[in-house]
């Protein structure tokens, strides 16, 4: 998969309460959750997003609760991929399970500015900053995560194991 879109930057240690506050967890619907994506950071934050835009975060993105509603809200808001310096572990696992690919780009993440045009060549783990003219190449995905992605997410993976594919 390749992606192209505008970067939306958020800071370090963005927690799942910022991504989707608990008071909105009375639904499992992606569109409804997406409408309140980042409502815990700033009311109406999501209005800046156009479908296909790319979220760029700092350290430890997605820390806090185990709510799977967080990656669902990001997908529901129209952002198909997240780049960060690093990710919190439960969020990391959840995102892949939900079909939201993550790119762990380390210190170089800081070079991407809010509003930059980005292009992502997922197969190569490559992020292109078209505005500023540089590339970041991320380390390859752990084997366990590619297995889940290749099965079309964890649901497909388990379905196969249950012999119901």
């Amino acid at each position: 998969m390749n992606y192209k879109g505008k970067a939306h930057r958020v800071g370090d240690h963005i927690d799942t309460d910022a991504i989707i506050p608990a008071r909105f967890l009375v639904t499992t619907d992606a569109v409804k959750l997406g409408e309140n994506c980042f409502a815990g950071l700033e009311p109406g934050w999501v209005k800046r997003v156009r479908k296909g835009d790319i979220l760029v975060a700092g350290r430890n993105f997605g820390c806090g609760s185990s709510r799977e509603h967080a990656p669902i809200a990001i997908l529901g808001a129209g952002m198909p991929v997240v780049i960060a310096h690093s990710f919190a572990r439960i969020f990391y696992r959840n995102a892949f399970n939900m079909g939201l690919p993550l790119m762990e780009a380390g210190d170089e993440t800081a070079n991407i500015q809010d509003g930059d045009e980005l292009e992502i060549v997922a197969r190569e783990g490559r992020i292109r900053d078209l505005t500023r003219g540089f590339d970041i190449v991320c380390p390859p995905l752990p084997e366990s995560m590619s297995a889940v992605l290749n099965a079309g997410g964890l649901v497909g993976h388990v379905r196969k194991r249950l012999g119901k594919a």
Binding site: S65, S66, R67, E68, P71, I90, R93, N94, N97, M98, G153, L154, V155, H157, V158
Partner: peptide, 10 residues
Amino acid sequence: TGMGSTDIAA
């Protein structure tokens, strides 16, 4: 350890 709902479903 904590995990998301789909890992729990699995």
